[in-house]
Design a protein around this nucleic acid. Structure first.
Lengths: 142, 142
DNA sequence: TATTGTTATACTCTATAACTATA
DNA sequence: TATAGTTATAGAGTATAACAATA
């Protein structure tokens, strides 16, 4: 067994956050591929779920996505019959997004699955440690 | 000002870890571009720095990289005169990697810069909170 | 038979410039 | 002049298959 000294990187917040994100994404991909949802897909649908009528621009600001990269995602969801687009009456440039009945059913199911995944990812932490981890991470970027 | 409800995603470890990683990577790119080092570049050189003679395979296992994706990086570093490759006497398939004098000088300088960056990223945390965050993140993936 | 390093390649993710319609 | 949505495109990151040399 090779014994490599990685203490330098392991002392950095960014390095550790990235490693945790990659572990979490890996498990997500394994478990959620049956639903045809990748992490960013799920994030978008979850925000639409809890904010019906949200615009693409607001979505981009919330999830830190670039507008050009959202266009294809939204088109894909509309083609799959998961979301609906309705022009805003107050601003004719904007289009409100909301879940279709199929989209809502999918999110109610997959949000439950993601909660199970979340418990697995954090299974080496106590409930209070999990809460503390989330709190400290948010302090960094919010 | 748009008020978007993002409480669902903000309760997930993976989501928060990814957001912190992206903030950290963003600051890294701004500050480290003058050195021509991206985050993965820096990770590779840091591990070589602290483990002279390490092989590509060991590097891949340590940083969770795929061997085909490391080949180009190592070639690039060798061309820039930052690392040296020396065939292992004990195993003629393997090649040991180590920093050149220029590579060592660069790492001594940039590891200091990254430490400053680290302090900036964690500037909303107390020292003990910072240590706790790193500890909890490692519990998840180590 | 397994491992190291490698080539070629494909796919996804992310980033930038520029356009249109509307505010 | 600024903003919402869009198109096209380029670059970086990540993935698999397959090969030669060595263990």
């Amino acid at each position: 067994m090779s014994q490599i000294d990685n203490r330098y990187l392991e002392g950095l917040i960014g390095y550790n956050a990235r490693r945790v994100a990659l572990v979490s994404i890996g498990r997500f991909l394994d478990r959620m591929s049956v639903f045809g949802l990748r992490p960013v897909d799920f994030s978008i649908l979850a925000v639409v779920h809890h904010n019906p009528g949200i615009t693409s621009r607001e979505l981009c600001r919330t999830l830190d996505l670039l507008p050009p990269n959202l266009v294809g995602q939204v088109a894909k969801f509309e083609m799959r019959g998961l979301i609906e687009r309705a022009p805003k009456r107050t601003d004719r440039r904007a289009i409100g997004l909301s879940l279709s009945a199929d989209g809502l059913a999918l999110m109610l199911q997959t949000e439950g699955v993601v909660s199970e995944l979340e418990a697995q990812v954090g299974n080496k932490l106590t409930p209070s440690e999990r809460a503390k981890l989330v709190e400290l991470l948010q302090k960094v970027y919010l």
